[in-house]
């Protein structure tokens, strides 16, 4: 009996030792890794708040972070939620986010003011591989809110103008009242070949200009497929019709880059919401070369 007791005490002592070792191992890791993984958002100050239209606004955050054009961030307010927003600037000094009020979170973000705070994490995803297209002509097709990520591309091109040849912009808005980035449009008009279209004439004010879809602008234009790269971002129907038109102009699948949109929760390729046939939009995208996704239209 006495012997048994001794062995028992020994074993408990050993187990206590083990416990200590495990504690020290586990206690260090979480604080370091939590922030790296990016599950915990950072508090960022709003330097500028600009209302573009009745439902669109642009936030400028005081955040010095390196990013590619086309990447996105999870922006939110604790207690309300988070949503993925694409970065619409290209700068080391700040981050700009263009947001449309459609849901709970975006509406709450719309009530913020200059000097306020948002909680954001990121940048996530794979942006446009711009260094890859040096020496090419660039065609940019955007529709509505989809112009936001493309603004980052345009800012990249203006910074490295010598790397690219001709730049054609085709931007479509719902009506003249829904124009976002109105100031930037003026400067883009001087630098690049800018084409703007409006789907509808505004209801209340008088407007005499032309009315039509962006797709028609592209159909009418006379460019060929030589040394050209096309970036498309906008509503799915618009992207599909633009791709069909481009195919008639004999563009290859690897000349077209599209930007996909899915529900996102984690941003790190784990939660599974954004999966298209095994591809995570948040990690492997949101920018895809067309041939990477072209078989998965239904999903």
């Amino acid at each position: 009996m006495i012997k048994n007791k001794k062995t028992k005490t020994k074993s408990t002592k050993k187990s206590l030792k083990n416990k200590k070792v495990k504690k020290s191992r586990t206690a260090k890791k979480p604080q370091k890794v939590d922030l790296v993984y990016g599950l915990v958002p950072k508090k960022k100050k709003i330097i500028d708040f600009k209302r573009e239209t009745s439902i669109n606004f642009t936030l400028k955050l005081d955040w010095k972070v390196k990013h590619d054009p086309g990447q996105f961030m999870m922006v939110g307010i604790p207690g309300i939620g988070e949503c993925p927003i694409s970065i619409c600037s290209y700068s080391d000094q700040y981050v700009e986010l263009s947001i449309r009020e459609v849901g709970n979170v975006t509406k709450a973000l719309g009530n913020l003011k200059k000097g306020g705070f948002v909680f954001a994490r990121g940048p996530f995803g794979r942006g446009y591989p711009m260094h890859y297209f040096k020496g090419n002509n660039v065609i940019i097709v955007g529709g509505g809110c989809g112009i936001a990520p493309l603004k980052g591309v345009i800012e990249y091109i203006t910074k490295n103008r010598t790397d690219f040849k001709d730049v054609l912009l085709y931007l479509g808005y719902r009506s003249p009242d829904d124009v976002i980035f109105e100031e930037q449009l003026k400067s883009w008009e001087k630098k690049f070949c800018l084409n703007v279209s409006y789907d509808k004439a505004p209801a209340k004010s008088c407007y005499d200009g032309k009315v039509g879809f962006v797709t028609e602008l592209i159909r009418k234009s006379k460019f060929d497929n030589k040394n050209k790269i096309v970036f498309i971002c906008g509503p799915p129907i618009m992207m599909e019709t633009v791709i069909n038109i481009l195919k008639k102009k004999k563009f290859n699948n690897d000349q077209i880059y599209i930007s996909a949109e899915r529900r996102m929760q984690c941003g790190g390729g784990k939660c599974g919401h954004c999966m298209i046939h095994g591809v995570y939009v948040c990690k492997d995208g949101p920018v895809f070369r067309y041939d990477e996704l072209m078989d998965y239209k239904n999903d």
């Binding site: 586990t26 890791k29 979480p30 790296v36 993984y37 790190g268 390729g269 784990k270």
Partner: peptide
């Protein structure tokens, strides 16, 4: 995969 999940691996 990609980034390490601290909550799970603890």
């Amino acid at each position: 995969e990609g980034c390490w999940d601290p909550y799970y691996f603890l």
